[in-house]
Design a protein around this nucleic acid. Structure first.
Lengths: 173, 173
DNA sequence: TTATTTATGTTATAGCGTAACAGGTCAAGA
DNA sequence: TCTTGACCTGTTACGCTATAACATAAATAA
């Protein structure tokens, strides 16, 4: 998922979650299955709304605003009011099944539920795509910096704005 | 500014920008002077509203919402509408004289204008204090992680939620 | 001066998020 | 079984955050 194609196609979606091409239907289904396993393991109740909210994020495969998720939930027969979406999303974030991207006021399904809980988000300012990259070393450096002043890190948001591979090429050309 | 007092007093302010005690009036004036130098150097026009907005952040010495800054600007005879504050704050952020803390929907004066442009923010979930710590190693790790997928980082937000030294002690006691 | 850019201020509105309350579901224990 | 308590879902209502679009004024460049 991290390899960069030499000639990337134009973005198929305005905000895909990984820059490289991949079998999306497979990755979504697979991730959902792993998310279910993680939830079961943690004793977290993945109720219908919550599960559907996660599916919506996985299907879209991009960062989505809470109201956008809400619209889809409502269309599927769930509640129509903001708290419905916010609570489901909060649950997913709480249990590491989704992430909140504050720079975008948006949420995205976690692509590595249960394993990689130090994600960094790479947001392309040109094409608005968003990638979730592994950030263990970044998190380790953050923990060190915090420890130096006596601070204990519990949760972290690490978000970068810049240019994705495709747009870097475009800018150079 | 990074040393931790053995017996920190109760927070004098709900959201101070550094955990350790220090001579605030001195640090604010000094920082403002350095900020002016940085602005001049960059050819950035530190107009009255912008300068006043920076002063407000420095005087408060904590993270402030845009509307809170706006109220003070209005009280000083500047405009009363949101864009007045947002534009001034945006300018300050743009030129590295202030930072935006997305987790708090707030802004804070940069404590190291012109030198340290890889700040990390440490937000205490117990007492709401915020510290700006040096984050060069964190930023370096982030750049590395991004480069691994071909992404070029231009700006980054690195924010940690956890417990400050004082509240860690309190929780342990 | 005149043209051009940049900054300030306004009105109006869009977007994001949460508090507080009501009803429903489910499991554990009396 | 029935009741209690915890949790989940849904609602209304509201507040906070942020920006678009436009008018005016000030500074800069020609």
């Amino acid at each position: 998922m991290q390899d960069i194609p030499p000639q990337p196609d134009p973005q198929p979606d305005p905000a895909t979650l990984a820059f490289a091409r991949h079998d999306h239907s497979h990755c979504a289904g697979d991730t959902l299955a792993r998310a279910e396993a993680v939830a079961a393991e943690r004793g977290a109740r993945l109720t219908p709304v919550r599960r559907r909210a996660l599916e919506i994020l996985l299907e879209a495969h991009r960062a989505m605003g809470a109201y956008e998720v809400l619209d889809r939930l409502a269309a599927d027969g769930f509640g129509h009011q903001p708290p419905v979406a916010y609570r489901a999303l909060e649950f997913l974030v709480e249990h590491g099944l989704a992430h909140r991207i504050r720079r975008l006021n948006a949420f995205a399904a976690c692509m590595h539920p249960g394993q990689d809980h130090a994600p960094v988000f790479l947001i392309c300012r040109a094409c608005d795509s968003v990638a979730e990259a592994a950030g263990e070393p970044v998190r380790a450096a953050l923990d060190t910096a915090a420890a130096a002043v006596g601070f204990t890190v519990e949760r972290a948001n690490i978000e970068a704005l810049g240019l994705c591979p495709a747009c870097t090429q475009g800018a150079a050309a």
